[in-house]
Amino acid sequence: MKKVYAREQYCINCRLCEVYCKTNHSKSKDVVKAYKKESPSPVSRISVYGDSKASVAVNCRHCDDPACVKACIAGAMTKDKKTGIVSVNESKCIGCMTCLAVCPIGCIKISNTAVKCDLCSGEEPACVKNCPNKALVWLEVGGGAK
């Protein structure tokens, strides 16, 4: 499956991936409204760690054998067999946050429910599309889907 990969040698710590992820997961799809008007405020599913010296964007790896899916007691977290995308059904999620505790790379975010990267449902993800330095790439390197 195609996943988002970060290339730290080109990450410039601008954190625009966070801005555009949040916008793409908002109701209005408008940057200003997503940040200033919408309630509950949409949540970015990608996070940049580090500082100006070294930084890297981290989002869900859509693992082959996802710990979050195994741990979910409500059956809200599933891995799509076809696309390989791990997603959370927000109407089923009970907000226990077990997924957050078991995720090995800390990619589950908290809103009213658990939220996480859905790879923008298979289109070129907003973080990749808007990365000004091509530090994020959307690539097929094998694995992740059956």
Binding site: C14, V19, V32
Partner: peptide, 13 residues
Amino acid sequence: RERCIDCGCCVRQ
């Protein structure tokens, strides 16, 4: 100020 979302991109750049 009506458009600034305080994302801090300018601060870091």
